[in-house]
């Protein structure tokens, strides 16, 4: 599998809502985890995957990724300002996301990763 490391971005997303904990026990911290140490890589997708998806993946490594009923979300912003949603997103761990970009997402691209609580990071990359 051909793998090209495109960029290394370090974006710390601050979160400080300072809401009190709820009345449950063993509650998780009120603030969601900050996303940190993000790296983005493009690669070819291993088979089998659906035919109508491009054979490329984007691997996003970092810290603090998580999902609820939704998310994390991955979008791609092109130089022309258009934003394209990933065709598929797999949260392999809190440190690693694999996403499928739509066809035509190439060249200078800003990868946007957003947790369910809207904390987001971006990384400028190019193909």
């Amino acid at each position: 599998m051909k793998r090209i490391l495109i960029a290394l971005a370090l974006i710390a997303a601050a979160l400080a809502t300072n809401r009190p904990f709820d009345d449950g026990v063993q509650a998780a911290p009120d603030a969601g985890p900050a996303i940190d140490d993000v790296r983005v890589a493009f690669g070819e997708v291993p088979l089998p995957y659906v035919d109508d998806k491009p054979n490329r993946t984007v691997t996003i490594e970092g810290r603090g990724f998580y999902g609820t009923a939704f998310g994390p979300f991955v979008h791609f912003e092109m130089d022309d300002g258009s934003v394209h949603e990933a065709l598929g997103v797999v949260l392999e761990s809190g440190e690693r996301i694999v996403a499928w970009p739509p066809r035509g997402v190439e060249g200078a691209v800003t990868v946007i990763v957003q947790n369910p609580d809207r904390v987001r990071v971006t990384a400028d990359v190019s193909l």
Partner: peptide, 16 residues
Amino acid sequence: DTIHFSGEGNGDITRA
């Protein structure tokens, strides 16, 4: 039982 999601914060009624 115990999960709390920062994106929605507290309920206006208690967890109980």
